[in-house]
Design a protein around this nucleic acid. Structure first.
Lengths: 234, 234
DNA sequence: TAGTGGTCTAGACCACATG
DNA sequence: ATGTGGTCTAGACCACTAT
């Protein structure tokens, strides 16, 4: 494995372990060069990779800083429902149910766990102006996200990804979503206060860490008639 | 402007002007170094930028190659309907209607034209295995896309973006899509061979050139039950 | 064996930010 | 004035590909 790669991995680990805290200055090129006994070009290459991943920022004359995740951005990055006028609102969130159960084959596959491995299931209802908008089934590896089982569910707050980071040290970096439309089940109809047989949009999301490993799998359901989803293709 | 940037721009221009053709080998690092009288590191940095943009590919021991635009890729980039098993198929395409008409305020706004400016409207039906899947309304600036009005519609082929490039020199580089669900109109129900009042997914797409200028606006409609859309969020 | 890209080194000089 | 990152140089050595 190339030197700059090893160096990069080492730095990335230190950032994840918060040896250097978000927003803080990390060692300069020359310091790192001396610390690791490598050429300055090698240090630069390792840091350039960190920049590409969004882990650090450099500022000429100042230094290299560990980036703090901007959740006002990522909230909108991941929450892609729009109201009819194209505005995006932060819905309030309520955890309806929380339990640990053995992973089904499908979920285990998505999260790259063994079938039957313990996963946390969260049922969550998200509302805008007291109107239920989305019902979500969320699955997480029970080991990685163990702190979520002890914390009171009414302290989870309206956004889960900041919570994952705060209480479990897990950072969501990207996601894949698949959208389909189906008829609602009776249980969900009740939860969402919709008539039976309404058609709902299902968003299946696999959320990944910065290393590309799957961290969370969720299904979100909401009334199709109120649905609006936007995407950029590059 | 930094040297490596200038070099990069020069190389990028030569690629776009097809001085080196797609698929062909371009000069090696040492050749470029001598040609431009710069250090080899500078050449490398310029080429790394070309790689990041997807303009070239390098292969160890072989050399640096100009990438040929893969329309089999970009087709899938933009046509995101998937069959139930996750496979993606190339639908066949038929132009049902073609006319020039004055732009409505909405379309003019989307395409950044004046209201009433002439636009080409295409109605297009896309089928998989003779089954109609998608009905599309497509709008293009009549000036830019004038050649499309003289060409026979049965020679358009199954994909429009390669056609835009071949016959009008217009290249689609990115797009924004907005998805909604609505009830089908009677005319569309007939075209898509669906029962009345079926719910359909509507995909509104604004396709942009590499300069970010809007080139095409389209609405695609297909039965919600057969719908599957996947997106990557970064 | 010759040519290519991939890695790594060691340093010079500049532009920017701060005290 | 000092320290930082940004640019640029000049070359060594290695691993891969082709002949």
């Amino acid at each position: 494995m190339p030197l700059y790669q090893q160096l990069h991995d080492d730095l990335a680990t230190k950032i994840k372990e918060q040896v250097w805290r978000p927003g803080q200055l990390m060692p300069s090129e020359t310091e790192l060069k001396n610390l690791y006994q490598v050429a300055i070009g090698t240090v630069r290459k390792a840091i350039e990779a960190l920049i590409a991943e969004g882990l650090v920022e450099r500022s000429h004359g100042k230094g290299t800083f560990v980036r703090k995740p901007r959740f006002d951005n990522s909230l909108f990055r991941f929450f892609r429902f729009e109201s009819a006028d194209g505005q995006r609102r932060v819905p309030s969130s309520r955890i309806v149910q929380r339990q640990v159960l053995p992973a089904t084959a499908y979920i285990a596959n998505a999260l790259q766990l063994k079938t039957g491995a313990p996963v946390i299931e969260l049922l969550r209802l998200r509302s805008v102006d007291q109107q239920p908008m989305l019902a979500e089934n969320i699955y997480l590896c029970a080991q990685r996200f163990a702190p979520l089982m002890t914390l009171a569910t009414d302290e989870f707050g309206d956004l889960l990804y900041p919570l994952y980071e705060r209480s479990c040290g897990q950072i969501i970096a990207s996601a894949n979503e698949v959208l389909t439309v189906e008829a609602i089940t009776d249980a969900q109809a009740k939860l969402l206060q919709l008539p039976r047989h309404t058609s709902v949009v299902v968003i299946e999301r696999l959320a990944l860490g910065s290393d590309g490993k799957p961290l969370e799998w969720r299904q979100s359901r909401g009334a199709a008639s109120k649905f609006r989803y936007s995407a950029e293709i590059r």
